[in-house]
Write a protein that binds this DNA or RNA. Sequence first.
DNA 1: CTGAAAGCGCTAACAA
DNA 2: TTGTTAGCGCTTTCAG
Lengths: 334, 334
Amino acid sequence: MSDIKRSRKSTGQVTLTDVAKLAGVSTITISRVLNTPEVVAEETRLAVQKAINQTGYVPNLLAGGLASTKSRLIAAVVPTISGPVFLETIQSLTESLASAGYQLMIGQTGYDQEREEDLISAIIGRRPDGIFLTGVMHSAESRKRLIASGIPVVEAWDLTDKPIDTVIGFSHKAVGSEVAEFLKKKGKNIGIITGTDERAQIRRDSFCKALCGKPLVINVSPPTTIEAGRDGLRQLLKADKKIDAIFCSSDMLALGVLIEAQVKGIKIPSELSVIGFADLGSSRDLEPALSSVHIDGMLIGRLAAEYFTTGAIASKDSAKIIDLGFSITSRAST
Amino acid sequence: MSDIKRSRKSTGQVTLTDVAKLAGVSTITISRVLNTPEVVAEETRLAVQKAINQTGYVPNLLAGGLASTKSRLIAAVVPTISGPVFLETIQSLTESLASAGYQLMIGQTGYDQEREEDLISAIIGRRPDGIFLTGVMHSAESRKRLIASGIPVVEAWDLTDKPIDTVIGFSHKAVGSEVAEFLKKKGKNIGIITGTDERAQIRRDSFCKALCGKPLVINVSPPTTIEAGRDGLRQLLKADKKIDAIFCSSDMLALGVLIEAQVKGIKIPSELSVIGFADLGSSRDLEPALSSVHIDGMLIGRLAAEYFTTGAIASKDSAKIIDLGFSITSRAST
DNA sequence: CTGAAAGCGCTAACAA
DNA sequence: TTGTTAGCGCTTTCAG
């Protein structure tokens, strides 16, 4: 309980100095016990541990981060966490990171370009050890800032020739065309119900192109919900009663189509084939089981974590552009 | 490009000092332009702004946080973000926080008590300006640490007499008994399919008590999925063919029940009533529309953000224990 | 309205 | 194996 008058008030928290005094060693020794215990003599280490426990000392990572320029913080930017799409990626990222002693900070852009820039600034200000971006970053200003910061960046869920740093994803264009080929075998009158976010649009455009511009298109502004899916099917039927195959830009939309079809007595897949995209873990448990484009979202999270914590992705030969691909999982709904 | 030899390498980033030199003022003036622009003369402010833009300066919030003991970081602890239950709370928390210039850090316990303690330590180490806890905190050690840290804490999605600081939630016990009363009117042979996390168990116990211990109970370890719901209904039917009302501890489970019932040709609600709990925004869009216990998860997030950013929850008279209640939304499934 | 000095709590670098 | 010294980049305090 020292009552030394200071020119500036301390926080009242237990600090390294307090622990050091109690243990009768210097502050750096405490620091070593915490960060590199192997270089400290057993005896000293034990004494220090005791002092730490006695005082209930919790290291101030802000101070440590400032001194070491390592924050053990990773930032992730997503359009929204409440859409199920990026959820398992974020979850596996958080988990992989936590086991390496890192924490995840989350920012939502709400599909808003402007907010993205503010967010990026706020994030860089915290000097995270890594930044995880959903989709490739397009604002020139943000790109510049990100590159200037020197912070490792992973752009995910998309592919680009010139990543800021590392990109882990797949080709949305290829998804569009492959699903088109797939559905050609299932129906004659094909439609698509699609979200209007950037990546969904790329899939839509290549889907339409592969179908020679023929498919009926229903655009849905995010979030893509069950309701939007039901409504989408209604609109599609209004436009063409003979519609017999639909590509939905999310499994939620597809679930909506499934439900609306059931209500209307449309038999799936005999009268209508439905395929979704990427987001629901439980597509297989629907009735009928939903066909979907499968993306390994967990793997994206794990690889990103590996990159941030070790500086390279060993299993991929430290490549900067990693194409994870995708697969079309055909189930009862097609 | 100063080439002064330093005993310790700087990070190479633009700092306040660089901007100050360029603008021809002291560092503190730059700091004021950034934090309290109203106290700086217009002329000075403009000159400083120019210098900031020229250099592309991004304030180091780690340093700022250390000096000011305000990190503008809030930490949230959830069992898992991939269950939809807490999602909208987290989303609204992130949003409300962002608009006040705060960032959200996320930690997942995975329903694991031990990890919770480690996580709490890691979080306190970052000296966040607030900690958001899902559920009331039970480990004595963590409670002690949290209280000692002096950091504002919000425990949410549950209620307790002795919160660490502030609690925003509702009574799970009341949910159990009220749903029991509700289902008594809908069926004679009542069952419950429930997750095994703590809060779900409280609901289950009071549900069973209100039903005089009669209901059939199916326990499901988290996460509660559609598959588990389908399987749950199968088990329930095996145990009692006449089962005619079911309470599910999540809407996902309930959706599974709906699907399995459809497959088995069981009519809802005439032969079987189903009610879920709290998590799916789109319960109303299912077929039949799913009855559920409604919790205002968004409001929880907003109130918590208000507490963290302003120090009090004005609309609730700064109460420390806030019971948000719940409502039973009766739809076609019952 | 602006500045000088001191220091937040920690770790890098060097020395012993 | 341990300690000393000097900062990391910012904001507080107090003075002008």
